[in-house]
């Protein structure tokens, strides 16, 4: 008997590009993220037909149309719920949710938190531009307090959500942050999210050129980014700044910046542990603190059984305890009587 060994055809970015013209505004951060996903997906070892990308409503939610995979552009806020149903129905799928700050945290907030707590295996990419783009420029649930927009001419009155803290509070098992302009790091985050079995949540800082341009410029401009971005790496000290000249040390439960120039050295710098939920909480609080750097990378990751695996193991357990049910048994499962 001869065995035919089928060599998997190596896929490239092109395999994931659909025939639809991309219609985001020129210069939108979404282009970069689309390219990153299209580059990473061929390398994940997943058959192309097993990818399913689900989105809600908003600029980011056009994403599935540009990917040559299975895709579902659903309704506002509901992508995690739709993705949940699909994943429970077919756990073989690699399910991705593409959403925005308004879609995920405002109209769809309920689905986001419940998906996170259930730990259904999917990757949620939340493009956070801190503004409503598709409805043309109102403040979003991540806009800073006092934001002047079309719907808040005297400044917004809502305190913003802190996405990693929200995800941690909801019981998320993989929480990370990436920046649209940092391709290498973002692609690494996407790979890690895929590798995590459970709900992976990546908050993507993404620039909206039209309605909120420059909101993350401190984190992306060459002149400032070294001073303002803290790249979290598991087991490594939290250093940042030009030539990693600064670090964070923990005093009580607060981080403070230390200069690594003699008075302090690398041993004084706190070492990141991505499996420490308390640490992740403290790190998430750095999101809106001006005098401390903004963390990117993996805040927290933990292996927990996934919802869909537990659904299917309950089914298996029921079948092994009671045997596979049949309609005959079902129909006669209570008192019956016969009429001759």
């Amino acid at each position: 008997m001869t065995e035919t060994i089928t060599q998997p055809i190596k896929m490239t970015r092109k395999d994931f590009v659909s025939d639809q013209e991309v219609r985001w505004c020129p210069g939108c951060g979404d282009y970069a993220i689309l390219a990153q996903v299209q580059k990473v997906m061929p390398e994940l070892g997943v058959a192309k037909e097993n990818f399913l990308i689900v989105s809600g409503i908003g600029c980011s939610s056009r994403f599935p149309y540009y990917m040559d995979t299975y895709g579902f552009h659903s309704i506002h806020g509901r992508a995690p719920a739709l993705a949940s149903g699909a994943k429970i129905a077919n756990p073989e799928l690699s399910v991705w949710v593409v959403t925005g700050d308004g879609d995920a945290m405002s109209i769809g907030g309920n689905h986001l938190i419940h998906t996170l707590r259930r730990n259904i295996d999917m990757n949620i990419l939340m493009f956070n531009n801190r503004i409503y783009g598709l409805t043309k420029g109102q403040y979003s649930p991540t806009s800073e307090l006092g934001k002047v927009t079309k719907s808040s001419p005297m400044g917004s009155l809502d305190y913003p959500f802190n996405p990693p803290a929200l995800a941690l509070g909801a019981g998320g098992t993989f929480i990370a942050r990436a920046i649209d302009r940092d391709q290498k790091h973002s692609m690494e985050m996407i790979k890690r999210a895929h590798g995590h079995k459970g709900t992976s949540f990546i908050e993507y800082y993404q620039n909206c050129l039209i309605f909120n341009d420059g909101t993350f410029s401190d984190l992306t401009d060459k002149t400032t980014k070294d001073e303002s971005v803290l790249k979290l790496e598991h087991g490594k000290p939290m250093v940042f700044g030009v030539k990693n000249s600064k670090g964070l040390r923990l005093v009580g439960s607060q981080f403070e910046v230390i200069e690594l120039n003699g008075a302090f050295n690398i041993d004084d710098v706190f070492v990141h542990n991505e499996n420490d939920k308390n640490l992740a909480m403290i790190l998430s609080e750095l999101t809106y603190v001006d005098h401390l750097p903004t963390p990117v990378g993996i805040f927290y990751v933990k292996d927990e059984p996934t919802y869909e695996d537990m659904v299917h193991s309950q089914i298996q357990e029921a079948v092994s305890n009671k045997g596979r049910g049949s309609l005959e048994q079902l129909f006669k499962s209570s008192n019956t009587w016969t009429v001759e």
Partner: peptide
């Protein structure tokens, strides 16, 4: 009736109830 292979999903709200079913129908 899990031994009949039935998958039940008690969703977080009415909307997620039907939307999850739409996802399952697509799948």
């Amino acid at each position: 009736y899990k031994n009949m292979g039935v998958k039940t999903f008690q969703a977080e709200d009415e909307i997620a109830g039907v939307v999850s079913a739409i996802g399952a129908a697509y799948a």
